[in-house]
C-alpha cells in the first residue's frame, strides 16, 4: 500500500514535469523565408552575366529587394578577380586578370518588405580587367537571400596596356626562376592611345629594397616592343623578390606589371 502511494507520487511527478514541458512547446511560426533580390539594373539596363564598364566612368546600380516580414541589410561587394575564382562554379575568362586596386564593400541598412536602393560608383582611372560585383541581402531574422554575382569587364583606354606574352621563350607563370647572370628576354608589347613616355624595369628583393633599375625612353610611341628590354639578372640579397615593368604615358598615366622571382 505504502509502495503503491509512492509509485503514485512518482507518476504525479512525471505528469507535472510533462505538463510544464508540454505547455512551453506552443511555438510561434518561424520566419525562415529568405528575402529575394527581385531586380538589378546596372547603368540603367538589366545586366547580362558580364558587363562592360570603362575605367574612370561612373557606374550606376539599382537593386530592388523584397521580404515577407522585414528587410535588414544589403551588401555590395566589388572585388578583383585576380586569382580566377568564380561565384557559380563555372570557369569564366571575361576581362582577364584584374590590374589595379579597386574594392567596394558597402553595407546599406534596409527596412520594410520592399525597397529599391540606388548607388553609383566612379571607377578608378588605373584599373583594367575582370572584377566581380556581388549583391547580398539579409532580412531582420538573418535569412539570407540567394546572392547575385556579376562579372565586370573593365576596359581602359587611359593607362598604357602591358602585354607580356613570353619570358625567356615561355609563357609567364606565377614565378620566374633565375640565376645570377642570366639574360632575361621578353616578348610582347606596351601600347597607349596617347603615346608612351618612358618604361622602367625594376627588381626588388624580399624586403622591398630596389636591387636594380633600367629606364627606356619610348619618345611618344603608341606601341613599344618588349624585346627591346635587355636584362642581365643581378646578384640578389634574398632568395625571393619581384620583377616589375612600370610604364608612364605622356599624360603621366601609368601602369605596372610584375612577377615573383625566385633566385637560385
Amino acid at each position: 500500500m505504502f509502495n503503491q502511494m509512492k509509485t503514485n507520487k512518482l507518476i504525479l511527478l512525471f505528469a507535472v514535469f510533462a505538463l510544464v514541458a508540454g505547455l512551453t512547446s506552443c511555438s510561434k511560426d518561424a520566419d525562415d523565408e529568405a528575402p529575394a533580390i527581385t531586380q538589378v539594373r546596372i547603368n540603367g539596363a538589366a545586366p547580362s552575366d558580364h558587363i562592360h564598364v570603362d575605367a574612370g566612368s561612373e557606374m550606376t546600380l539599382q537593386v530592388t529587394m523584397t521580404d515577407n516580414e522585414e528587410l535588414n541589410q544589403l551588401k555590395i561587394d566589388i572585388h578583383p578577380n585576380s586569382d580566377g575564382h568564380s561565384h557559380d562554379g563555372e570557369d569564366h575568362d571575361h576581362g582577364g586578370s584584374a590590374e589595379g586596386d579597386w574594392e567596394v564593400l558597402e553595407v546599406i541598412n534596409l527596412s520594410g518588405t520592399s525597397q529599391t536602393v540606388n548607388r553609383s560608383f566612379v571607377l578608378p582611372d588605373d584599373i583594367r580587367g575582370g572584377w566581380h560585383l556581388g549583391i547580398l541581402v539579409i532580412d531582420k531574422e538573418g535569412n539570407e537571400a540567394e546572392e547575385r554575382y556579376y562579372e565586370l569587364e573593365v576596359e581602359n583606354d587611359i593607362i598604357p596596356l602591358i602585354t607580356v606574352d613570353q619570358i625567356n621563350g615561355s609563357e609567364p607563370g606565377d614565378e620566374l626562376h633565375v640565376d645570377e647572370g642570366d639574360v632575361i628576354t621578353f616578348a610582347g608589347s606596351i601600347t597607349d592611345d596617347n603615346g608612351l613616355d618612358h618604361i622602367h624595369v625594376e627588381i626588388y628583393d624580399e624586403d622591398g629594397n630596389e636591387v636594380m633599375e633600367q629606364e627606356y625612353d619610348a619618345a611618344g610611341a603608341l606601341s613599344w616592343d618588349l624585346s627591346q628590354i635587355s636584362l642581365t639578372f643581378p646578384a640578389m640579397p634574398t632568395e625571393h623578390g619581384e620583377l616589375k615593368i612600370h610604364v608612364h604615358d605622356i599624360d603621366d598615366h601609368h601602369s605596372e606589371w610584375e612577377i615573383h622571382v625566385h633566385a637560385h
Binding site: V20, A21, T24, N72, Q73, K75, E103, L105, V107, L136, I138, D139, K140, E141, G142, N143, E144
Partner: peptide, 25 residues
C-alpha cells in the same frame, strides 16, 4: 530523454553583415 531550457545559449544569425571583408553575416 527529454529536456526543456528556459534560456538556451546558441549562435544565431544577427541579420547584420560583418564589417570585416573576410566574413559574411
Amino acid at each position: 530523454f527529454y529536456g526543456y531550457y528556459n534560456n538556451f545559449i546558441y549562435l544565431d544569425p544577427s541579420g547584420r553583415f560583418s564589417p570585416l571583408p573576410d566574413a559574411g553575416q
